[in-house]
Amino acid sequence: MNSLVIYGATGYVGRLVAQLAVRRGLRPVLAGRDLRRLAALRIDAPVRAASLADPAALDRLLVDASVLLNAAGPFAETQRPLLDACLRTGTHYLDLSGEAAEFLDVRGRDDELVRAGVMAMPGVGFGVVPTDAVAVHLAGRLPLARRLELSFVTSGQVSRGTLGTLLAGLGEPGVQRRDGRLVPVRAGAAQRGIPADGRTVRVVTNPWRADVVSAGQSTGIPDVSTFFAVPAPLRLALRVAPAAPWLLTSPAGRRLRAALLRRIPEGPTPAQLDAGRSLVHGLATDDAGTVVEAVLTGPDPYRYSAYTAVELLARTAAGTVRPGYRTPAQVHGPDVALTTPGTVLRDLR
């Protein structure tokens, strides 16, 4: 029971992960729903097809696997059937999701996971690895922290899948963590200024980010707020969507969204990946008013995701597991975020 499986290897990030895993010598099985597309990858690794609608096929795929990495979005559709198969076969589960709802689904299955001896770790890419690391780092510096703010800023080309997930979620309710509970919060409800590259960047509430779940799990800090930097047109969309959700959910709105996505490239080119950058800012405070602050800078989020996913795939296969729902920094510590080349974590105060 020693094979590694990457499901969704034909997607944009899935290909980046598969290529890097093979270069690192992990020799994964590349899996997905379409055998022809898998064979066309021309990556030096075995390929196998299995439909998400066929539990027996998924079980055959995983029967001799020690760990599965799910890189196939949308995760709201792929997460459950693949996690079900992992529970049936005793396979540890990783994925690249990054939405709070997806993490809550996994967390809700913690008892099942522990009984099966299976670890489930969603968000092993940019989804939460850097923010989880910053959260755990700050909690270590301020053990009685009461409030935590996590923000991210990225530059570079967005992929079709990422934009599709964001547009689909605009009309959905979001949450933040207050007194240890998740409470409804509107997108863009608050804004902050954070330091980034020698300037102040405005960030607004992002109520869908999985950080509100993962940081609570990793640190126990009762209040967690999440923010992101977005272009002005998207800030307008964040304000309009809750008041007019039919713009997104109506047939006409869905057709407009599909037409927009068709015009978006599948993902960044190699040159755009080289040029892209990411920044995660964290600020924690306690009831005495003590403040600690840190910033993590790194490469393009898609490249970051590939490196951290392969790193965590390798560590999980090597036996670094704790059965149940787990977060990256909870199991591996904050330094796991620094395994990606070009990543730096530094304290601001």
Rank of each mutant, 00 (worst) to 15 (best):
L279P: 01
T269P: 02
L279H: 04
R263L: 15
L273K: 03
A271V: 11
L261I: 02
S278P: 01
V291P: 00
H281Y: 15
R262N: 10
H281P: 06
S278R: 02
P265H: 09
G282T: 13
A284W: 05
D286T: 01
T285W: 07
L260F: 15
D287M: 03
L260K: 00
P265I: 11
G282H: 10
E266A: 14
G276W: 07
V280K: 03
V291E: 13
A288D: 08
G267P: 10
R263C: 13
A271H: 08
G267T: 06
L279M: 05
R277Y: 03
G267I: 08
V291D: 00
L283I: 11
G289D: 02
G289K: 03
D286S: 01
T290F: 04
A288T: 10
R263Y: 12
A284I: 07
R262M: 03
T269G: 11
T269Q: 08
A275H: 09
D286H: 02
E266F: 10
A284K: 06
P265C: 06
L283A: 11
L279G: 05
A271Y: 04
D287L: 13
T290Q: 11
G289M: 02
V292Q: 01
A284Q: 09
L283E: 15
L279C: 05
R262T: 05
G267W: 02
H281C: 12
D286V: 05
T285V: 12
L279N: 00
P268R: 05
L283F: 08
E293N: 01
Q272V: 06
I264C: 04
A284M: 11
P270Q: 11
G276F: 09
D287H: 08
D287T: 12
P265E: 08
A284S: 10
V292N: 03
L279S: 03
S278D: 03
L279K: 00
L261D: 03
I264K: 02
P265V: 13
H281E: 15
I264R: 11
P265T: 07
D286G: 00
R262C: 00
L283Y: 08
P270I: 08
